[in-house]
Write a protein that binds this DNA or RNA. Structure first.
Lengths: 154, 154
DNA sequence: ATCCCTGCAAAGGGTTTGCAGACGC
DNA sequence: GCGTCTGCAAACCCTTTGCAGGGAT
């Protein structure tokens, strides 16, 4: 499952910072490490809380700043699941995938389908466009009767 | 191009309001009309400004309220193009479509591809999910050299 | 007459910004 | 030591909420 190691990720970030002539601050590495110790979709505030509990004292400003860098160097991907809120996930060493979001329990499932690339190729050709990334989300209702999250629905 | 007429749209809304036992206020119909006189992606504030210039005096609260109703009865669709901001477009009489967003000029293009439904079917089967809607966006850079919007890029 | 809907303004939540001090280089 | 990065808090933007008055039924 874990198809990366933390040193590899850090060295990629390291190189990125050097290339861009940015400073290698402790905060940036602590944030990177925290992210790669999670395996969920998290938002900036989740990170803030998680970091605070580790008795570090990293501000939201730094978190947002660092997330921008990590997204830029492809170590983290950024998503919006239709709620005007940004969520992130680690991405190095994990297959590209898309998401399935349940309206009733907010569960997020992941899937891959190569056909999306065929669509992408077509679109690039037809419109004269260089696609950098895509976002495909399916929204609906899971049919899992045991689903705990469903309690939440009013 | 215009494959709807305003009366039809109004009567759909009318029926919806009756079914839900909601009141038929002037404001609601004025907003619906304003939306169907546009042919772009707009946000709540665009509507607010547009309505103000018609010397109506419709508040943001009413606009947000009405947009929720119109989305609920499928006369308007709601999107997020990766900027934590919601945009809308009229949807009755227009083919379902997905979007292509240019990072450099913010242009939004539209396309249809039936393969997305194949992916959807597969996902529903595999995960036991009833998909209600999907959102597929491609982000990239248009290769249009004459593109006016590109000036905006810093 | 009821009570839902409206306008207004304030509050809310997530994100960005400004600034003075800290620290990587 | 220079100049960037940080923490903090205020500002910001979009959206939601509370409330009193108004209009649909």
């Amino acid at each position: 499952m874990k198809i990366y190691n933390l040193d590899k990720v850090k060295s990629i970030f390291n190189r990125y910072l050097e290339d861009k002539k940015l400073r290698k601050t402790n905060e940036r590495y602590i944030i990177l490490e925290d992210i790669y110790n999670r395996n969920d979709h998290f938002d900036a505030d989740d990170l803030f809380i998680s970091l605070k509990s580790r008795s570090t004292r990293i501000s939201r400003a730094t978190i947002y700043n660092t997330l921008d860098l990590l997204v830029d160097c492809n170590l983290v991907s950024r998503h919006q699941f239709g709620k005007n809120k940004t969520v992130y996930e680690r991405s190095y060493g994990f297959a590209q995938h898309d998401h399935l979001i349940c309206y009733e329990c907010d569960k997020v499932l992941e899937f891959c389908d190569p056909r999306i690339h065929n669509i992408q190729n077509m679109v690039e050709e037809i419109f004269g466009f260089n696609v950098v990334k895509h976002s495909l989300n399916f929204y609906g209702v899971c049919t899992d009767q045991q689903c705990e999250g469903k309690k939440k629905v009013e």
